[in-house]
Design a protein around this nucleic acid. Structure first.
Length: 451
RNA sequence: GGCGCGGUGGCGGAAUGGCUACGCAGCGGAUUGCAAAUCCGUGUAUACCGGUUCGAUUCCGGUCCGCGCCUCCA
């Protein structure tokens, strides 16, 4: 059996992946809160875990991949108040856009896409259970998880509960017993969305949804739980607390994987810093180039921070053009062993890409190259869209050719037919001096591109 | 303050106790009237200072620098 190794945040080390049931792998990745567009940083885990999903499906008979949609959240309520649109209109719109944009990056849809609002009953049941077991308490219409009731709270993030309680923020809400306690349920005002509960009408206060949905759809303990590094604390720590305390200590997930940040000039890309670009915008800037964006995201190892740059996308685009040219008329065969081994080693995509380049050195490997690239979610599109001439055009601005220029092109063509090279070059130079580049295409036509 | 991550050639980015990928750019050559594309060739890189070692970029300690979490954020 081919083993996969995974860096597990739980033990801060790389570990051999041992599935609970080799016949059925279960993984869960934290999905979006749907109130606006996702940025490229949000796309990194999507692409990373999509690649893992493809590898797992290659290695195991059955894989169930779940990714939640958070469609109830204070940010959504705020967005609704701002735009005047109904909450469901907002969440449906951005769910659709999210799936389209991620689809453009060749990310497959997960098998299960649970929506928080469809699991409120399960969340209430979970919270009730935690209250009855003494891990949560009601206070002033809220239900809070009492962190000090859990011995190993902080096991994922390496934090010490005592520090968290002692180092309490300046403003500890007065309904909290201890500073580190977190809200499981909170009351809603009549104009806020809410559900009836044993504690009155309210809504989920924390992302109780992940724990509730995992239990219902996948079971108490799953194999892999993934997400961005910023979710380690408090989000995933709290998920673990909720689930473990409700399940008599059973692990929520055996392997926790976290991808590093996408940065901009070395700083984390984030909504609060405002230094982000949405996938939607990027796809408008690079039409039909989602695959290049995907490859750019995979050129660095998922745990490392990666700086966003358009240069990386352009470079990826060139790479894909070259590969597509080789693969164009080939049927995929089997993935190369070297590529599989790279991916099985904690998803070492940069090494896998290096191996793809090795395959690309000989056109005999075309079938293998195609099959191998498919594991990374690459090279199964239409090769016609990746003619190298398109690369030049992609970077060029749109403009209208004047009648004079069109006339010049006709005269250059005549000069070429007459083998009057001096005249042909003179016209080329004329265009060149105005920042325009002439490219003679193999079919005899000439393209004009802005430099 | 607590906890954590990282500094590899012009750029991106792997790997490794001795022989250090791969891509982009650059340079040289081939080829096509020219140009583009394509093909071949081409690299003076492991932040700094100590230690361990026959040998360290790799292991250990320290310094400097950058970043992150501790508050909603992939």
């Amino acid at each position: 059996m081919n083993t996969i190794s995974i860096y597990n945040t739980l033990i801060n080390d790389k570990d051999v992946f041992i599935p609970i049931d080799p016949n059925h792998i279960k993984m869960y990745v934290c999905g979006p809160t749907v109130y606006n567009y996702a940025h490229v940083g949000n796309a990194r885990p999507v692409v990373v875990f999509d690649t893992l999903y493809r590898l797992l499906k290659h290695d195991y008979a059955k894989v169930t991949y779940a990714r939640n949609i958070t469609d109830i959240d204070d940010k959504i309520i705020e967005a609704s108040l701002e735009t005047g649109e109904d909450i469901s209109v907002i969440t449906e719109k951005y769910t659709r856009i999210y799936e389209e944009d991620m689809g453009a990056l060749n990310a497959e849809l997960p098998d299960i896409k649970p929506k928080a609002t469809e699991y409120v009953g399960e969340m209430i049941a979970l919270i009730s259970d935690l209250v009855s077991k003494g891990h949560a308490y009601e206070s002033d219409g809220h239900v809070l998880f009492q962190v000090s009731t859990m011995d190993d709270y902080g096991e994922l993030s390496g934090k010490d509960v005592k520090d968290l309680i002692a180092g309490a923020r300046v403003n500890v809400a007065d309904y909290k017993r201890e500073g580190a306690d977190f809200v499981l349920w909170k009351p809603s005002t009549p104009d806020q969305p809410g559900w009836d509960s044993p504690w009155g009408r309210g809504r989920p206060g924390w992302h109780t949804e992940c724990s509730a949905m995992i239990k219902k759809e996948l079971g108490e303990t799953i194999d892999i739980h993934g997400g961005g590094q910023d979710l380690i604390f408090p989000h995933h720590e709290n998920e673990i607390a909720q689930s473990k305390c409700s399940h008599d200590g059973a692990n929520l997930a055996n392997y926790w994987m976290h991808n590093g940040y996408l940065t901009v000039n070395g700083e984390k890309m984030s909504k609060s810093l405002g230094n982000f670009i949405t996938v939607h915008e990027l796809l408008e800037e690079y039409p039909n180039r989602g695959e290049a964006i995907r490859l750019a995201l995979l050129t660095s190892h998922y745990k490392q921070p990666a700086d966003f740059s358009r240069e990386a996308i352009t470079q990826a685009e060139k790479q894909l053009c070259r590969w597509y040219k080789i693969v164009r008329n080939s049927e995929e065969t089997k993935p190369a062993k070297a590529v599989l081994e790279a991916l099985r080693d904690d998803l070492n995509t940069p090494k896998a890409i290096m191996e793809l380049n090795q395959l690309a050195k000989d056109s005999k490997n075309a079938g293998e190259l195609k099959a191998s690239a498919k594991l990374l979610g690459l090279l199964f599109g239409n090769a016609k869209n990746w003619d190298s001439t398109h690369v030049l055009k992609a970077g060029a601005g749109k403009f209208e050719l004047t009648g004079h220029d069109a006339d010049l092109l006709v005269r250059r063509k005549e000069a070429k037919v007459n083998k009057n090279w001096a005249k042909a070059d003179e016209i080329r130079d004329d265009f060149d001096s105005r920042g325009l580049k002439l490219v003679d295409n193999p079919d005899g036509t000439t393209s004009v591109e802005k430099k």
